[in-house]
Design a protein around this nucleic acid. Structure first.
Lengths: 125, 125
DNA sequence: CGGAATCCCTTACGATACTG
DNA sequence: CAGTATCGTAAGGGATTCCG
């Protein structure tokens, strides 16, 4: 279980770690996926239009596309309700919830980052 | 310090959290930034060409651009060495290292995700 | 060696209109 | 209401060349 080396410099473990990071990055790629997940994590089950309102600025094309990709990856479920006119609910799957640690760390960092920026601006005055 | 409400539905705290997540996402946007940070976190100080070799496939244009953006955001330092021909070293700043928890969670999730995919393929056979 | 400049192409994304 | 279809643009990104 020691560190396996490739061409004397980079360990396999290290490379696999980089690959894992890259996988995650790819799945969360796109302009809105992270925010969609964060919204569903914060607010729970949400309808199409509610998501569109929460994600101010997103159009129907992008919202549909990103939701589909998230569903394909097993991160959210799509449920069509028996109403008229129809309504559709989206919800994080249990697997989708497993992304929560990443989102949480991003929230933490983003918050402190904004604080840092504000401090820097204050110093310049 | 209770939960402040906006239009009776979304709390300010919740909205600020979403904004923080979005900030982080923006700073880590781009095809290579996360990987650059991960590489510098794993391998420490690295030269331009070494990075290019580690990030198999990246071209000089993208590498330069993403490095500059990371530098502007205070996440990495760029040091020109007195050699001939010149060499340049890139390194994570202390602030850059503060992104480590995010990267770590991404590595963790990506690893388990790959495991899950492999399991699913195995079941189908 | 590090990187800027150029060219070119694809994709991502947005706005709008339309449908069950 | 929840999308799909279509169109158009801007940006992202790759390959190559050139320069200090």
């Amino acid at each position: 279980m020691g560190t396996k080396l490739v061409d004397g410099s980079i360990s396999v473990d290290c490379w696999e770690r980089l690959r894992a990071i890259n996988d995650t990055k790819d799945i969360l790629s796109g302009k809105w996926k992270v925010m969609i997940i964060a919204c569903l994590a914060s607010f729970g089950k949400k309808r199409y239009m509610e998501l569109q309102r929460l994600l101010a600025g997103i159009g129907t094309k992008m919202l549909s596309k990103e939701l589909q990709e998230l569903e394909i990856n097993g991160l959210i479920t799509r449920t069509v309700m028996n109403t008229k006119p129809i309504t559709v609910e989206y919800e994080l799957t249990r697997y989708g919830h497993s992304l929560k640690p990443i989102i949480d760390e991003m929230a933490l960092w983003g918050k402190s980052h904004r604080g840092k920026i504000i401090d820097e601006i204050a110093k310049k005055e």
